[in-house]
Design a protein around this nucleic acid. Structure first.
Lengths: 340, 340
DNA sequence: CTGAAAGCGCTTACAG
DNA sequence: CTGAAAGCGCTTACAG
């Protein structure tokens, strides 16, 4: 019942321990036949390298996932949905994932220790708040890192993946003006979050350029109740009712739809509502939420692919990669308008 | 810049390596003064034990989280919401979490290897599908394990935490009959999932006992479209319209509300709708979804607490722990009825 | 209460 | 292309 080690494999295959190790870590240095033989024996003996021992010698396949948002504060469906995908892709490549949530004082300590002890070989950093202490640490320690987020200031230091927040929202608003919408409001989230700030900027940019009306921004919060209050106030003044409300994310779009319905204003008929994200929940509700959507699955896949490349090639890459968005037309926006 | 090891701490503190190690692993065997001294020096030198080296000697603080559902198939908000909480609680106790999703062939192999190599000290198993191969493996290998789920057959082997699915749903239906509802329908999920089977049983049990009408069960699927079709069919026959529709989970409750609204039947006025879970989404929608709710945060906390106890006391505990539910009255159910 | 020493299972520089 | 051997940073049985 004792577990088989590298020694057992070597003995049974009639080769040295070194050779067995090379099969796993330096396959080019082993003759094809020998390699096959060793792998066969390993399989027979149910052998897999002990990762503690490998780790002790400097080899590791642990990846940290750092999520710098507070799970208690709110739900982040996009992020929650990404984790399983990231995990699956990493596992398929032989890595193990250790996720860290809400890196406060204590967790920063753990991470520091893991990083200093070289117990991780890479990191995926989910940018959300503006606190970049941990990202700075990862960069300083030369840990291969991929950021999921749109961080201009960091794109020369790490590899970032996201949609082009400001530009995408600006384009969306521009498009709506072109389609004939005269008054476009925007529901922002808490601008302590980078993504909220960026998307809001996109809205401002378009409104100013088009100069048809002044900016109408509400929310500035993640709190559903406050958003609903803002919506109620917005629609109470009949003259002020906009043609379309764009929401910083789908969840807020759902809040808005709920509140409009409650006040007998029908989304898609009386007023257009648009979310951002394309999460599955946007199809649960009635009327279905139109959304500027992007694939979180795709982002996850790209993040893992790029991270793996860095690790394999032992070369840290930087830059900003933007993924495409796609406008999903649903019931909450008048068909004639956006479809044309 | 070289990282400080146990040797450096020992030297600076003027004690042996053994003593330093004891401070971390066997504090009782070290004099109070010595212990403090060592800890001080460790702090000064920024020392934390290398977990690869500890692991190699048999000590580990890695916990696996095994999620046996397919993330591609559907979203499981309850499970997704639990992960950050589990992670946070574990980290606070000094453990690291490695989550595995969808344990198919390959991942089973990885897990097998991790388990055999004694690289984990415990596991949290999220029961969902009926495939218990990995749970059997954990039990066979004597890995301290906590199951999040209601597994009658396993409660003598592992510690399980969940709500008492069958009984809770049976009680709920009983209560509704007592309140005067005459016809109660149930939207089930795919009964390949244990939880779906159990909750459905609760519904059947109550319907049979009360014997007011025959069971009306729809869905049997996780597919929103199919559920919506079923609902449409159900309400198309005016005579068949039930007083209340209970849904296996909140997500399905949201599907049902959407479809009812689309057909001009107003939830909470024309018909009652109830979900199970109490996820945040149930408050996003209009009308708000009434729900038999329970705290996933609480389940997560209890799971970690019990797991830690087992590891600390080096003793595997079994049994089934049920947590309480609370009926949350919202707009989707007539107030007079359930409030009384 | 404390220490010297063996050894966990690997990787890799070095030698051939 | 392959092997003997050092050593990664710890834990713990043993001795005192």
């Amino acid at each position: 019942m004792k577990k088989n080690g590298i020694r057992d494999v070597a003995k049974m295959a009639g080769v040295s321990i070194t050779t067995v190790s090379f099969v796993y870590n330096n396959p080019d240095r082993v003759k094809e036949d020998t390699r096959k033989l060793v792998l066969d024996v390993a399989k027979k003996l149910n052998y897999t390298p002990d990762f503690n021992a490998s780790g002790l010698r400097g080899k590791t396949n642990l990846i940290t996932l750092i999520v710098n948002f507070n799970v208690d504060e709110q739900s982040h469906p996009t992020i929650s949905e990404a984790i399983p995908h990231i995990s699956k892709h990493l596992t398929a490549l032989g890595y193990y994932l250790i996720p860290f949530f809400e890196p406060e004082e204590k967790e920063t300590m753990y991470l520091n220790s893991i990083i200093s002890n070289k117990q991780i070989c890479g990191s995926i950093f989910m940018a959300s708040k503006k606190n970049m202490k941990l990202l700075d640490l990862l960069i300083e320690k030369n840990i291969p890192t991929v950021v999921i987020g749109d961080l201009e200031n960091y794109s020369n230091k790490v590899f970032c993946i996201d949609i082009d927040n400001s530009k995408e929202i600006k384009n969306l608003v521009n498009k709506l003006y072109k389609l004939g919408y005269k008054k476009i409001a925007y529901v922002s989230g808490n601008i302590d979050y980078i993504v909220c700030e960026q998307r809001l900027k996109g809205y401002y940019d378009s409104v100013k350029e088009n100069n048809i009306h002044s900016p109408i921004v509400l929310g500035y919060t993640e709190d559903a109740e406050k958003i609903k209050q803002d919506i109620k106030k917005l629609i109470s003044n009949k003259k002020d009712i906009p043609d379309v409300i764009i929401c910083k994310d789908d969840i807020k779009g759902i809040y808005v739809i709920s509140e409009l319905l409650r006040n007998n204003i029908f989304p898609g008929i009386d007023i257009g509502v648009i979310g951002i994200g394309g999460i599955s929940a946007s199809e649960y509700i009635y009327p279905n939420l139109s959304s500027l959507s992007f694939s979180i699955k795709n982002i996850s896949k790209l993040a893992v692919k790029n991270l793996n490349d860095m690790i394999i090639n032992n070369k840290i890459i930087s830059g900003q990669k933007y993924i495409k968005t796609k406008f999903l037309f649903k019931e909450s926006l008048k068909e004639k308008s956006i479809n044309s």
